[in-house]
Design a protein around this nucleic acid. Structure first.
Length: 650
RNA sequence: GCCGAUGUAGCUCAGUUGGCCAGAGCAGUUGAUUUGUAAUCAACUGGUCGGGGGUUCGAAUCCCUCCAUCGGCUCCA
């Protein structure tokens, strides 16, 4: 007998060699049907693998991460079996589970598969799944494993095996397919009830762009058909929210092949939206003691040699601009910090002046490979909501907390309710990789950790993820349909103050080096607007909406009254227009609802007589009538409510 | 940059194996209608079929090349 400890610390006895599945069955048959993986003594375990010692156990269903992982990993094997059946001779790379499904990297030789082949693959997978093939685990010696895959002609597998240690190698076989794999896997394939091949793409073998490109087939599977359908609905929803689509529909931004790829053009409406965001942030930052500055879009090559960026990125970036006569060399600015350092250096500073906080909506240009560009989220020219704080090492923690306050204000104003942060620290075993003294690093890392704790922020700590010049804190938000996006960042920098020889005079009348903090709550205006569009599906909060109100006269006869209403609202700085097209009211309502204008005002005979308007809220329908002044007051109060947070938290 | 896919009117898309002046809906213009809470009717305008080159009696359709976009990979100060 063996003693099994459950997560609630209860202990039960089972026969020697019982598998997690046996244990689950002993608990309840319905539970057993849902178990897809197990953790035994902290190790991921196949549900059918015998347990031979006393152990702690945790059973995983599909609804937890470990369960999904095993389910999708098993599905990747099933995909491989289907591929091998349909395309004999295919060579296999790796096939892991990912956040949403799984993939398998395959080498099809001369064969090319396209999305037209997906259906056949799905059918084959479903057919193979229904055979209820058991996943069998087998320990194997390195020599035997090499022999097996050499005979099979899978050179990718033999390469992988060569990197493994003898005695740690296991194979899994189900049906006609055997794979090198660590596991764990499902009991059998029959749990996989719903299959969808999502897309295919090229992927370099082992992520190395110098090596062969394999075909990566992405798929997802579920234990219930309905779950697949729900997932497909979510994908549709994500597609409907795509910022590239909505940005086009709402006339926010555009791209022109003639201007150049990755260079967004902000259209009038998108510009209003962006300016609202900028003004809001400027107000918040003003309240927090920031000073606004402006710097040129180019800088002498020398500036970036000083900053060190030229050495690091010079060759792989936009090439220098040369002046025709003097032979000067300028670079498009890839970041604002060197310019801000020179502003700091413009005059000597006393410790009494610190912290100095310089803010700029600075447009920067970075060369991105053409294939990396994506809508507004990855572009070649973009504007950072940048600021640099120059402070003493002792002020670091307090400044960090203040920056976090600003980020919280923004997240609140934009209704990002769920967010987490990642603290990136240096690799404690490789301290020499980093610039700056041990003492300062310790101080900075402690400051970040304490600041996040004091603010009650949910964080994960990643060792070795810090930049060479300092630790950082990155914010991750969850949008309205549960997707995660990385937004703002706060970074400590010991490097640039050194390189630019920044100084301040301390209390002791000696020169000291300030610490620099880079921070961008939005990240970039482009990326942030993209996330905001996908979060809101283009239904922006009132204060951000490029068009806040539209007035719809019932017929031409009421155009004059509509103009009167328009003038009144314009006096209140409410962004209003009239839709005086010769169309029926129903048509006008539909069109303006689709434009996601927050308020629609209908005016006709009734309203003209009573000096009122009929109010309709986007997505909610008729709200009854009120006087124009009452409406204007109402709108202003709403906007103040949405944006007042800056004043409150000063 | 690499692999694969796509590119037809301002937008969304039809155009079977090469074959009459390249089509539809929406948008736009004009006219009729003067409208009460998610699409009034009609006429009209609008296209070097991504650019260039080639094959052919004939190319949106086949081939080459370039450009852009999309899905990934690699990259992201």
């Amino acid at each position: 007998m063996i003693k099994i400890t459950f997560p609630d610390q209860s202990v039960r006895e089972y026969n020697l060699g019982s598998s997690p599945m046996d244990i689950a069955k002993a608990l309840s048959n319905s539970l057993a049907k849902e178990i897809v993986a197990a953790t035994v003594n902290g190790e991921k375990w196949d549900v059918c693998r015998p347990i031979t010692t006393n152990a702690s156990i945790k059973l995983h269903k599909f609804d937890d991460e470990a369960g999904k992982h095993a389910f999708w990993h098993s599905s990747a094997h099933l995909l491989a079996e289907a591929i091998e059946a349909l395309y004999p001779g295919t060579k296999f790379g790796i096939g892991p589970a990912i956040d949403n499904g799984f993939y398998y990297d395959i080498d099809l030789g001369e064969t090319v598969i396209t999305d037209k082949d997906f259906l056949a693959i799905e059918k084959k997978m479903a057919e193979l799944a229904a055979r209820k093939s058991v996943y069998n685990r087998r320990d194997i010696s390195k020599a035997d494993a090499l022999d097996f895959f050499t005979k099979k002609g899978d050179e990718y597998k033999t390469e992988l095996i060569n990197d493994l240690e003898d005695g740690t190698i296991t194979l899994y076989t189900h049906g006609n397919f055997t794979d090198l794999c660590r596991g764990p896997h499902l009991a059998d394939t029959s749990l996989i009830k719903a299959v969808k091949i999502l897309n295919i793409a090229g992927a370099y073998w082992r992520g190395d762009e110098k090596r062969k490109q394999l075909t990566r087939v992405y798929g997802i599977t579920f234990p219930k058909q309905q779950m697949l359908e729900e997932y497909l609905v979510l994908l549709e929803e994500a597609k409907a929210r795509d910022h590239r689509k909505i940005g086009k529909e709402l006339g926010l931004f555009a791209f022109s092949a003639r201007v150049g790829q990755g260079l967004p053009l902000w259209l009038p409406k998108g510009t209003i939206l962006r300016q609202q965001l900028e003004n809001f942030l400027k107000r918040v930052q003003h309240a927090y003691g920031y000073q606004q500055v402006m710097t040129p879009h180019i800088g002498q090559k020398e500036l970036y040699v000083t900053s060190g960026h030229y050495a690091k990125y010079g060759k792989d970036s936009f090439q220098p601009i040369h002046t025709p006569c003097e032979g000067e060399e300028f670079l498009l600015k890839p970041m604002n910090c060197p310019h801000h350092c020179e502003i700091y250096n413009n005059e000597p500073h006393s410790y009494r002046e610190l912290p100095i906080r310089l803010a700029e909506f600075g447009t920067v240009y970075r060369y991105e490979q053409s294939g990396e560009l994506h809508g507004l989220t990855r572009v070649r020219g973009f504007t950072q909501d940048d600021a640099h704080i120059f402070c003493t090492p002792d002020q670091l923690k307090d400044e960090f907390k203040k920056v976090m306050d600003i980020i919280f204000i923004i997240f609140k104003a934009l209704e990002f309710k769920e967010f987490t942060a990642q603290i990136s620290l240096r690799d404690p075993n490789n301290k020499e990789k980093y610039i700056g003294s041990d003492e300062n690093w310790d101080k900075a890392e402690r400051a970040i950790i304490e600041a996040t704790q004091e603010k009650g922020l949910k964080t994960v700590v990643e060792l070795g993820e810090a930049a060479f010049y300092g630790p950082k804190l990155d914010f991750m938000i969850k949008d309205a349909i549960g997707r995660k996006w990385q937004l703002g960042t706060i970074q400590v920098d010991y490097n640039l103050p050194e390189r630019f020889e920044l100084e301040y005079t301390g209390e002791d009348n000696q020169k000291h080096r300030p610490v620099m903090i880079h921070r961008a709550p939005f990240g970039s205006m482009e990326r942030f607007v993209a996330v905001l569009i996908e979060h809101t599906a283009g239904k922006f909060p009132l204060w951000l909406a490029p068009e806040q109100v539209v007035i719809l006269p019932i017929s031409e006869k009421f155009n004059d009254y509509a103009k009167k209403v328009l003038n009144l609202l314009n006096n209140y700085d409410i962004r209003t227009s009239i839709d005086d097209r010769n169309e029926k009211i129903g048509k006008k309502i539909r069109d303006n609802e689709l434009k996601r204008i927050p308020y629609i005002l209908v005016v006709g005979e009734k309203e003209e007589h009573s000096e009122t308007i009929a109010v309709r809220k986007q997505g909610e329908g008729d709200k009854g009538s009120m006087t124009v002044n009452d409406f204007a007051e109402f709108i202003n109060t709403e906007i103040k409510k949405q944006t007042k947070i800056a004043e409150e938290n000063k």
